[in-house]
């Protein structure tokens, strides 16, 4: 299975949708959702990079049956993305907790409404 650049283009599209959501929506939760999408798309990019066609998961298959040495996909991008997923959830948690506090002190989570308020506050 050679998949050429298909994954890469999917990554571009997801990235664009995510970024557009972040920039165009004024609802803060929606912004966070867009940000999550934006980050997830990057995971796809890295993981696709690590795949070798015909390869298998990078876990050593032991036993004498293993005559032809299997091709393993590259484990390094997997490690990097594990870290990136963690960073993603950390950012999400922090962002959402800010949203909760903003809702409490401003009474809204709509960016435009908050901006209108700013002068009065």
């Amino acid at each position: 299975m050679s998949f050429g650049f298909f994954n890469y283009w999917v990554f571009i599209i997801l990235l664009m949708i995510g970024l557009y959501t972040v920039m165009s929506r004024s609802n803060l939760v929606k912004k966070m959702i867009g940000l999550s999408l934006f980050q997830i798309s990057v995971f796809l990019f890295y993981i696709s990079m690590g795949k070798i066609s015909g390869g298998t998961a990078p876990i050593v298959v032991d036993g004498p049956l293993d005559t032809a040495a299997p091709i393993y996909s590259n484990p390094l991008p997997h490690v990097l993305i594990l870290t990136a997923i963690v960073v993603g959830i950390a950012t999400t948690a922090l962002g959402l907790s800010l949203v909760v506090r903003i809702r409490e002190s401003f009474g809204t989570i709509d960016e435009e409404e908050i901006l209108e308020m700013k002068d009065g506050a």
Partner: peptide
Amino acid sequence: DRRALTAAFQYLIIGTV
């Protein structure tokens, strides 16, 4: 100043991007 919250949120979005 409660605007610290929105400032932090704004920074979080832009910084993460």
